[in-house]
Design a protein around this nucleic acid. Structure first.
Lengths: 151, 151
DNA sequence: CACTTATTTTGAACAACTCATAATAAAGCG
DNA sequence: CGCTTTATTATGAGTTGTTCAAAATAAGTG
């Protein structure tokens, strides 16, 4: 959210022959400031800087930035899509089944451990791991835990 | 989709003090017959046996059966929810970014490899792995492949 | 067979997102 | 620096996938 970031983002946009607009920078800043934000949350955050910004614009900006690799989209179950600026590494996410909180999880083994499906008719490019669990807060609050499936 | 299955399902429902209804059996049969089916697909399939079945009923039946562990719900990006009767093992899914096809993938290493997030404030119960790639058909057809992210 | 209550149907509503079109403003040029 | 081109954004409406409340139906029980 610093002018550091802003300059970097502007450079990246430039490098891809895209225009550097207020709304793109505002959206990037909003996502940087609150990772795993939804489109609505991004709108709310970005509007403090850019009051006339609309939700539809947020949607197209998020979508565009995601396709040019400047944002990463996360799609947890029972939640609208979320976005983050942390890209370029393959980290995963843990979502609490109690409160929906999302946390980043570094790839446990250090190098994509799951990227080796035995035999398949597909050429695998990405392995996205979504951990589901119960965060300490919800555990303390005694949130009902679902039956754990087998390995 | 045999009477074998039907009897088993009826037994499972009974064991959970749930009523054995035509619509539940029809939905189970439909999902068994076409794994990874969407709610709409289930409706279409089940209606050949039970023409008056409605989409809303399919939704509640799918949801109920999922919560009592008789079905598993898959939520791939850019797709409505899908369901399968293969439960009780922890297998994952590979979705083709070209055509959307979904395939089952057995856990590569034989025992949940990713179930060890380093340090976390959450107690992990499930690790869902979603592979994304390009199936041979789409590869042959020369479907544009997205840039592959780093490990 | 009658009764109780889970289940299904009916009908409507909602959230998240996408689309077409018109208005706006970056970026390059003279 | 102002002008032009065209990407980008705003406007307004529409779609898809799903959920909800209430009335009708039908499993299972005695």
């Amino acid at each position: 959210m610093t002018s550091q970031d802003t300059a970097g983002w502007a450079g990246q946009l430039h490098a891809q022959d895209r225009r550097v607009t207020r709304q793109r920078l505002a959206v990037l800043a909003a996502v940087e400031q609150s990772p795993h934000a939804t489109a609505e949350a991004v709108l709310a955050a970005a509007r403090s800087e850019l009051p006339q910004l609309t939700l539809q614009s947020v949607y197209v900006v998020l979508s565009d930035l995601t396709t040019w690799g400047m944002l990463r989209r996360i799609e947890p179950p029972n939640s609208p899509a979320r976005y983050e600026t942390r890209i370029g590494d393959n980290h995963h996410h843990a979502v609490c089944t109690g409160c929906g909180r999302i946390e980043d999880v570094d790839c446990a083994v250090g190098h994509a451990p799951c990227l080796t499906p035995s035999s398949s008719t597909m050429t695998i490019r990405i392995a996205d791991v979504l951990y589901q669990g119960v965060c300490t807060d919800c555990a303390d609050a005694g949130v009902a835990s679902l039956p754990a499936p087998l390995p």
